[in-house]
Design a protein around this nucleic acid. Structure first.
Length: 426
RNA sequence: GUGGGUGUAGCUCAGCUGGUUAGAGCGCCAGGUUGUGGCCCUGGAGGCCGCGGGUUCGAAUCCCGUCACUCACCCCA
């Protein structure tokens, strides 16, 4: 652009890489999912909470962990005019925890359970089931230490996905223990890994020092034998954490939720303690198979400067959910299509349209004065249940000719009776 | 950030080893009756063949570059 070369052809304006438009034909499916979410979570006593899409960068750095991939290389951060650093939220929990602390909600709400819906931002390379702006449904419950809440929230997520029509789901559980367990285990693991360093991939050699738990997540084939032989966290849990996890599993079995445990399930955010879980799709998502993931975070609120308040939650990716959901049938957009033919019919149509809409009837009136046939085709495409025709003959009778598009039958309806008549039939 | 694949109409794609007006299906618009949709038939609109350069008498087609999209790695929802 700076050189005096060819006049650069103006590129058409387009959405930023990794973002996408949700077009009118798609919003129905989104609204359905959101509606199910609201209704479902309400059954468990959850209410919606909305926090800003951007926060101070420090919140995420401290909350999620400086060494995580999300913080170290995926955040959309930018300088504010006053010199501060702001970041588009890469996940929801940190902002919600900040708000809980800021408004002292733990002392305000005796049942602190919230959900949130909205966009998250991570600067990753897009691929199937992964965007730079994507949407999550997020759920958090605070203040309950008992394992019952773990089982309840996992059950809630699982049944939510089922209610959205998903099948072929697999629930995976693990416990990463309390902070001390985790720390101690990380040390044990690091020792074991150092001894095997030669057999590990370069990433794992690096992770051995930075975050040994994440070695367990490695998918490089040559690392697998080493990983399988590593000491397992289950053998390094404190008695409390061990009992806690056993009770979570017991209750889930009681609730009839199928699951398997995996000692290798280590989630990428640093704040998790004790229970971690993930729901994956066995097919349909390519390599991004996780639909829902979450866990307990008993130290997070305190670490962010709040009270010693435990918490547990999960996030699920709406785009991924939609990829797996059965396709939605397109809904009719119109109940009644008005078709004034005679010149004198136009005013009748206008007032009928207003009255119908006031009565809650979805009404469309073609303003272009197109041919009869064109308008019939349009009515059909809109899925109109009825077409109301008003031509010279009908005017003379003082009645609409009301056509039922399903049965192809039609009957006269007196002009003033149209609204009541239709309300009775829709 | 690193690899692979693909860029032709609104969508899905054809276009053989370079050859003259670039095609199909679907969708869209309009007609096939004077006031009746779906099915069928006919017609029409709509393409700098991603962009730039090169080879050639001639490039959608071959070569180079570039950009975009996509899948995968990494990591995550």
């Amino acid at each position: 652009m700076s050189e005096g070369s060819k006049p650069a052809k103006r590129q058409p304006l387009k959405a930023i890489k990794g973002t996408h438009d949700i077009l009118p034909a798609e919003t129905g499916a989104w609204q359905r999912v959101e509606g199910v979410a609201r209704e479902h979570f309400a059954r468990y006593g959850y209410r919606e909470m909305r926090t800003p899409v951007f926060e101070e960068t420090e919140l995420f750095a401290r909350g999620i962990g400086e060494d995580t991939d999300v913080v170290s290389k995926e955040m959309y951060s930018f300088g504010d005019r006053d010199g501060g650093s702001l970041t588009l939220r890469p996940e929801a929990t940190a902002g919600i925890v900040r708000a809980v602390i800021e408004h002292n909600l733990a002392n305000v709400d005796p049942l602190l359970r919230v959900y949130a819906l909205g966009p998250m931002f991570r600067r990753e390379r897009p691929q199937k089931g992964r965007q730079r702006q994507f949407h999550q449904v997020d759920v958090e419950a605070f203040g309950v230490t008992a394992p019952g809440i773990d089982a309840e929230i996992v059950e809630m997520g699982f049944t939510f996905l089922e209610r959205c029509g998903l099948t072929g789901l697999e629930l995976i559980l693990n416990s990463v223990g309390d902070a001390e367990d985790r720390q101690r285990y990380a040390g044990v693991l690091r020792e074991a890994l150092r001894a095997q360093a030669a057999a590990l991939c370069a990433d794992c050699q690096r992770r051995t020092e930075t975050n040994p738990l994440r070695v367990l997540d490695c998918k490089v084939p040559t690392c697998q034998p080493v990983i399988e032989a590593l000491p397992r966290i289950a053998d390094h849990l404190g008695a409390d954490a061990k009992d806690h996890f056993a009770e979570v599993c017991r209750q889930l079995a009681l609730l009839g939720i199928p699951y398997r445990t995996s000692h290798r399930l280590v989630r990428g955010l640093d704040y998790y303690t004790r229970t971690t879980f993930e729901i994956v799709a066995t097919e349909g998502l390519g390599s991004q198979s996780t639909v829902l993931g979450g866990g307990r975070y008993d130290g997070l609120v305190r670490d962010l400067g709040g009270p010693d308040l435990c918490g547990i939650g999960f996030a699920l990716g709406v785009e991924r959910l939609l990829l797996l959901a059965p396709p939605a049938a397109d809904e009719p957009r119109c109940d009644v299509f008005l078709m004034p033919l005679a010149a004198a019919a136009g005013d009748h149509a206008l007032s009928a349209q207003k009255a119908l809409r006031a009565a809650g009837v979805r009404t469309v009136l073609d303003h272009e004065g197109r041919s009869f046939k064109s308008r019939m085709k349009l009515a059909d495409k809109l899925g109109a249940r009825f077409v109301a025709i008003l031509g010279d003959d009908e005017l003379a009778q003082g009645a609409w000719m009301l056509r039922d598009m399903k049965t192809s039958s039609q009957q006269p309806v007196p002009l003033p009776a149209l609204v009541d008549h239709l309300k009775g039939r829709l």
